[in-house]
């Protein structure tokens, strides 16, 4: 595949459009889902079932004044929301939706996604620190320690999958899982490999992606009852909007990665009609679970969150890595 300038532009435009549409309508889905869980209708007024709510919200955010409070570090304050959004868009470039639908496949696709994924923690740090607000400051400190703590088990779990697939290429990782749900990485009974810890790994990865995207019950960064609004307390207008969209785009990335690494990507559970629709169904099922969890559980505290990662998730994922490596060597 030759990488021409037009190809790149088209890929980026499609990625931006996909991310923006997803982020906007995930907000709508979140509000509808919350309404469903809380016995109320949710957005209702704009369009049928409130479907025009996201564009209206967007217009509202864009027409508001972008206020830069006195005393903030202006350059970093302005860059931070862009930095929250930008890496997620780039990450989409390499995510394969099906065998044919991928903007630009790379043999180190997985590595690239993690590199850009870790940049969003930096955006939170920059946004919170430059805001010159004590709540934002505490929040960004929390966000960074949370990101560090949860990236480790996430990466270890990913290495386990990479060992099984033998590649960092996302296409290949999915390719190894084709042919029905019993071939997916989430199941322990893989041909010649009886790793019973794989479902645990899947859970660890899922929990980590909840924590990485700052979602409840791990939304310590923007714990609204403690830290007002966390790192985006001082942001108004689209500055806030970008942080918000970045969060939802991160959710989509997290769901995509979980699907690719553990749920067989575009593979059909019964080996029939593989294609992009399965991928879409899987990621939205995961996103619905994200929403469901958010509206059911109360928030944890930062220390129990870090304890969970350092004392439970990291040892288990390390043990799983060891076990998988051993099994791969033996069989």
């Amino acid at each position: 595949m030759t990488l021409t300038f037009i190809n790149v532009v088209a890929a980026v435009i499609i990625a931006i459009a996909f991310v923006a549409a997803n982020a906007a309508y995930l907000v709508w889905a979140e509000r509808k889902g919350a309404g469903f869980i809380q016995r109320r209708p949710g957005p209702l007024e704009n369009g049928p079932w409130g479907l025009l709510q996201p564009p209206v919200d967007g217009i509202k955010l864009m027409t508001k004044q972008l206020l830069i409070p006195g005393g903030v570090d202006k350059i970093i304050f302005v860059i931070a929301p862009v930095l929250a959004m930008f890496p997620t868009i780039v990450s989409f470039v390499t995510i394969p939706f099906s065998e044919t639908i991928v903007a630009h496949n790379m043999n180190i696709g997985l590595l690239m996604i993690f590199v850009f994924g870790s940049m969003s923690a930096m955006a939170l740090l920059m946004g919170g620190w430059s805001s010159r607000n004590k709540y934002s400051m505490i929040s960004s400190v929390r966000a960074v320690s949370q990101a560090v703590a949860y990236e480790i088990p996430m990466l270890i779990t990913t290495i386990t999958v990479v060992l099984i697939a033998g590649s960092l290429d996302l296409m290949e990782i999915v390719g190894k899982q084709t042919g029905g749900f019993w071939h997916w990485n989430v199941w322990p009974l893989k041909a010649g490999l009886f790793n019973i810890l794989m479902p645990v790994s899947f859970l660890i990865f899922f929990v980590c992606s909840l924590a990485e995207t700052n979602r409840a019950p791990f939304d310590l960064g923007e714990a609204e009852s403690e830290l007002v609004a966390g790192f985006h307390t001082e942001y108004s207008s689209m500055g806030f909007g970008l942080f918000f969209m970045g969060e939802y785009a991160n959710i989509v990335i997290g769901a995509c990665l979980t699907t690719i690494l553990f749920l067989g990507g575009w593979d059909c559970p019964f080996g029939l009609f593989p294609g992009v629709w399965w991928f879409i169904i899987k990621i939205y099922a995961l996103i619905c679970t994200f929403i469901w969890i958010r509206w059911t559980f109360p928030r944890t505290t930062i220390y129990s969150l870090l304890n969970l990662s350092w004392k439970v998730l990291i040892p288990i994922s390390l043990f799983n890595l060891l076990l998988t490596a051993g099994l791969l060597k033996v069989f």
């Binding site: 809380q38 016995r39 609204e224 009852s225 509206w295 059911t296 109360p298 928030r299």
Partner: peptide, 12 residues
């Protein structure tokens, strides 16, 4: 419960 970050019980 809202203080603790759980929103839904408030509505109930």
């Amino acid at each position: 419960v809202l203080d603790l970050g759980g929103f839904s019980p408030l509505m109930y």
